[in-house]
């Protein structure tokens, strides 16, 4: 039924468009791209406003890759150690922020010990933001140094992974705030990241998931497990690593919303704060924007064929 309605609506759109193009050929032929920008602005702004007002989101069905991420984290038990590597920046926050939030929320709810790390200079700030946004207000019982800690940023890209995979203290003598790691209780007995029960990487590019897979998981396939979340354009580059080196992967906001729905359905409750529904909320504008893109492509083709027919005639 839904498909029929959609096909009908598309056919109606086509007819209207063909008449419009015939009537105002010049306008459509040299369509100013700013009209397209305006349409995109509306397509994004309206759902943002509506979802912000109504707090309603579209239902999300978890596909296998997101389900695998959820399952891998679910397998861990209280007190297990998780390394959260946040390799992204404010530019990609829109795409990756919600999944980072859900990862932290999921780990905190399951009382896992969280070790934050960043290979991007600004990743450190992303960690601080998540600590301030999630752990401090919603999990006040968690103690810094006992339940979570921030190793911060180290320059050197994959070189850092290469070292800490066997010897963490060679590079990290203090945490991100200058405290000697020997004085941090949860660092006791941690001499390499092989001690972690899971690595969770949120990555916007280089260095990121690919480097973690190549330099941490590949040399120690039986000691290091990892799941990741990445931007949409990166995802196809990471599929070859699945499922051996990378059991689960969240691709862009779509993957994040699938994972978020799994986590929130299990742990969220009814009065969950809006900050934990961000991924699902962002799927609203994404849906409308994608539909607009489809319509634009159809429109582009209608203009193209009308023009070609006219040229053939003349």
């Amino acid at each position: 039924m839904a498909l029929l309605i959609t096909l009908g609506a598309t056919a109606a759109f086509l007819v209207v468009l063909i008449f419009a193009v015939k009537a105002r050929t010049e306008f459509f032929k040299n369509l100013d791209r700013r009209w397209i920008f305006l349409l995109m602005l509306v397509a994004v702004a309206v759902p943002v406003y509506v979802i912000g007002k109504t707090k309603e989101t579209f239902p999300e069905k978890a596909l296998p890759k997101a389900q695998a991420v959820f399952d891998v984290i679910e397998e861990l038990s209280e007190g297990d150690k998780v390394l959260l590597a946040f390799d992204f920046d404010p530019g990609s926050e829109g795409e990756l922020g919600p999944m980072a939030t859900t990862f932290v929320y999921h780990c905190a709810t399951k009382k896992l010990k969280m070790y934050f790390i960043a290979l991007w200079p600004i990743g450190r700030q992303m960690i601080d933001d998540n600590i301030a946004k999630i752990i401090e207000p919603d999990f006040p019982q968690m103690v810094y140094g006992e339940d979570y800690m921030n190793l911060g940023f180290k320059a050197g890209n994959e070189g850092v992974i290469n070292v800490i995979v066997t010897d963490i203290k060679q590079l990290y003598t203090t945490d991100a705030y200058g405290t000697d790691i020997a004085a941090i209780p949860m660092m006791e007995g941690i001499d390499s990241i092989q001690k972690m029960d899971l690595i969770i990487n949120v990555s916007a590019g280089y260095p990121g998931t690919k480097e973690w897979v190549q330099y941490a998981v590949t040399p120690f396939p039986h000691d290091i497990r990892m799941v990741a979340g990445c931007t949409g354009v990166q995802a196809p580059l990471l599929y070859p690593y699945m499922p051996q080196q990378l059991p689960g992967l969240l691709a862009a906001i779509k993957g994040a919303s699938e994972y978020e729905s799994l986590v929130i359905n299990k742990y969220g409750g009814d009065d969950i704060s809006g900050k934990y529904l961000e991924a699902q909320r962002r799927m609203g504008p994404q849906l409308v924007a994608h539909v607009l893109m489809v319509l634009l492509i159809i429109a582009g083709n209608v203009i193209f064929f009308t023009e070609r027919k006219r040229e053939a005639r003349s």
């Binding site: 920008f37 995109m40 990609s92 893109m293 492509i297 582009g300 083709n301 193209f304």
Partner: peptide, 28 residues
């Protein structure tokens, strides 16, 4: 300052993707 500026430039992609798709996807 820095965070909103970065996010703004990245978000511009949405607009450029739309205009590029409109122009490039022709059933030639």
């Amino acid at each position: 300052v820095f965070k909103p500026l970065q996010a703004t430039i990245f978000a511009m992609l949405a607009f450029y993707v739309a205009s590029a798709a409109f122009r490039a996807f022709r059933a030639k």
